[in-house]
Design a protein around this nucleic acid. Structure first.
Lengths: 192, 192
DNA sequence: GACACTATACCGGCCGGACGGTCTGTCAAC
DNA sequence: GTTGACAGACCGTCCGGCCGGTATAGTGTC
């Protein structure tokens, strides 16, 4: 998303610019002026498309929520059918082969997330809806109750660690975590 | 922590007031004036103790980090010794019997966390140090590699869900997640 | 014990800058 | 000539931080 092509429609360019700012300079760096400049538009122009900062953030978050939803559904579809499909998709999501892709997704969502939350926690509504759907999907997954949610929580934890830069697991650690969580996909241990 | 007794020392009272504000009105509600008023001190008085807003946030976060560290160590100490002790402590931390206690801890940490991060992500240093220590402890826990980290990540995920109000698991769901994660504490499934 | 001096802890007015949002103006296209 | 899509000057507010003051307690010292 190298700030939208000059001839892309302004609305998209503004959203792109705002997103880039939030990712680069953090929540507090997002001002209307900065977003307008980044989009090659005047402040008046920005306010023509987004009547307030809140509207801008709503737009930003809506886009991200939709994109997360689609990305998630695609990941689920890419998994072989059967019990644990959704849970496996979540693990694939969190432990995809290339960390870059994971990070790209993470960082994009994270920045917008924080910006919206800071302005007004209620703005996270669309995200909450997506999460609720994911939770429903993973609960009706054919796995013993709790297993899917535990896997999802672990994925969320990894996301949060990156969100706040708390730690960066090594590739070995990632694989080990992946293997550990994979145990939750297997049938219950037999009682030998 | 009902805003510090009037005769507590000012520094503590200011920190208490700031923390209360952040929890009640969110990150953006924390201004020097508000914190000063809440502590029954003038703005000048606040700035005497904390030379800048950043200093105030540093103080806030340092206190929380120390408290988390101690709380965590106490939880570990309360677990019977043996392999998986730290991991069990983390589960106890996330699934303690009374949700209220968990929430109290969560919310206090969360609010300060977000406030500091918003001002400057670098301020999370002390928290990162605590997390790093926790990760080391859980890695050297006698569990297969990855298992402890997976449990920790799940705990983090639950924390984040509450932090952003993404979802509130029912008590049943909590117990089911707990049971699922407990499987990671058992020895590997035998190959019958 | 009286006086000068200093340090500590705090007060509160003020300033400067930033930022969200308004408003009027412009200009091409239809 | 009317509308859509901007431009950009401008305003009011808010907030962080500075600064000049002040009351109290302590310290030396004659």
């Amino acid at each position: 998303m190298p700030d939208g092509l000059p001839n892309a429609d302004s609305r998209t360019r503004i959203l792109d610019a705002a997103e880039a700012i939030v990712r680069a300079r953090g929540v507090s760096g997002l001002t209307l002026d900065a977003a307008a400049r980044g989009a090659g538009v005047s402040k008046g122009g920005l306010l023509y498309h987004f009547a307030s900062k809140e509207a801008l953030l709503t737009g930003l978050l809506g886009r991200v929520a939709e994109w997360i939803q689609q990305d998630f559904e695609a990941t689920v579809a890419s998994q072989p059918a059967g019990p644990g499909r959704v849970a496996r998709a979540m693990m694939a999501w969190a432990f995809a082969l290339t960390p870059e892709r994971v990070h790209e997704r993470c960082d994009r969502a994270a920045a917008v997330f924080l910006a919206a939350f800071h302005h007004d926690p209620a703005l996270l509504g669309p995200i909450r809806a997506v999460v609720a759907r994911m939770r429903e999907a993973v609960a009706a997954d054919g796995l013993p109750p709790g297993h899917g949610h535990a896997i999802m929580a672990a994925g969320d934890g990894i996301f949060m660690a990156r969100l706040f830069g708390l730690y960066v697991p090594t590739e070995q650690e990632r694989q080990a975590m992946h293997a550990a969580l994979a145990r939750l996909l297997e049938p219950s241990p037999c009682a030998c």
